[in-house]
Write a protein that binds this DNA or RNA. Structure first.
Lengths: 184, 184
DNA sequence: TGTACATCAGTGAACGCGCGTTCACTGATGTAC
DNA sequence: TGTACATCAGTGAACGCGCGTTCACTGATGTAC
């Protein structure tokens, strides 16, 4: 029932979901709308995805994989520390601005267990390097502070996405909260 | 079509929605389930609420009104400043722990315009006193920092609600981020 | 006190609608001999 | 080269289901005269 991950029709369906989901949220995203917009029959959807949940998880995963790749490449080779953290956050926020699904992914509630699990995987993934940075900066309460940093960054990403552009003052406020800890 | 705000049946319907919405989120909350759980006929629902959106907005409003009342009473008479901010946050988090709808309200996406508007009203309301506190603490970028403080507090509220109890380390991490600004 | 009427919360069957999913089928392409 | 079969993406009508909303009606309570 599920075909190869890079089949053109499968990618087209994901692309359509990215556009439609950005408009009304993933919770309201219907298979009817997706197949109509993609100009394929309804049955074709189930050639490429087991069910609706499988489709939503795929959308989540693609969003996150892309974003993670840009953050990694932006900070490749850097030592853990304040400047790497700063660069990571900037890369993440810049990446979110170019991803249509940002608001839908970061803002939607995750009551489906499968999606909740996917989100948890993502958050654990992000926490690890942030903890290393904070540790190098001498911050106490590593994982707790990392969680708060993620919460603030996600909030900024949503705000910028609604503003359809960067909000430098908001980014500065975050850096201010973190910078003091560096003892600059 | 809408009756007095404190009619017993109306309150019972809101109570049921608070319980059911806490389980599966407000997006999935169906009128069928509400009237069945409340042991009233389906038509009775529309005696008390114009439509589903009206009902959801009422649930939002009641949640927020209660919470706001406890925060206000916890900080009554205090001057703006660090300790008032600290008390406000603690009161908010403690209040969230006793409210079943916390996760559903704070975590649900708000794609319905009417609910989005209600949430915006709430956030503006909360921002004002926080800005006064931050100003007294000598923090720059008042409204931006206030937004980040709200984002962190909401994140902690959700985490504590899932843990069904306070998470002191997470609260401490937030205070650490803010405390330095006070110059203690 | 008795009668007539108004008000109002409550009832539940019925409505149309869009949803996710299924399934028997098509037709093109690849493989075997 | 020609024939037979296997594979696989794609099709679209049909399904059952639960949803939000409507509406003609009931029955109790309050008010007027």
């Amino acid at each position: 029932v599920t075909t190869s991950a890079d089949h053109p029709t499968r990618l087209a369906l994901l692309d359509v979901g990215t556009q439609l989901g950005a408009r009304s949220g993933l919770a309201r995203l219907s298979i009817n709308d997706v197949v109509q917009e993609a100009n394929v029959a309804k049955g074709t959807f189930y050639v490429h995805f087991k069910d609706r949940t499988d489709y939503l998880v795929s959308l989540h995963r693609r969003f996150h994989d892309r974003l993670f790749a840009t953050v990694v490449s932006a900070t490749a080779g850097l030592q853990p520390g304040a400047s790497r953290l700063q660069l990571s956050i900037a890369a993440y926020l810049d990446g979110c601005l170019t991803e249509p699904l940002t608001r839908a992914i970061l803002f939607d509630a995750h009551y489906e267990p499968a999606i909740q699990a996917e989100v948890n995987r993502r958050n654990e993934f992000a926490t690890q390097p942030i903890c290393a940075d904070l540790d190098a900066m001498g911050v106490p309460l590593l994982s707790e502070t990392a969680r708060l940093v993620i919460a603030m960054t996600v909030d900024i990403a949503i705000a910028e996405h609604e503003a359809t552009g960067p909000l430098p003052l908001l980014r500065s406020a975050l850096m201010e909260l973190l910078k003091l800890r560096q003892g600059i």
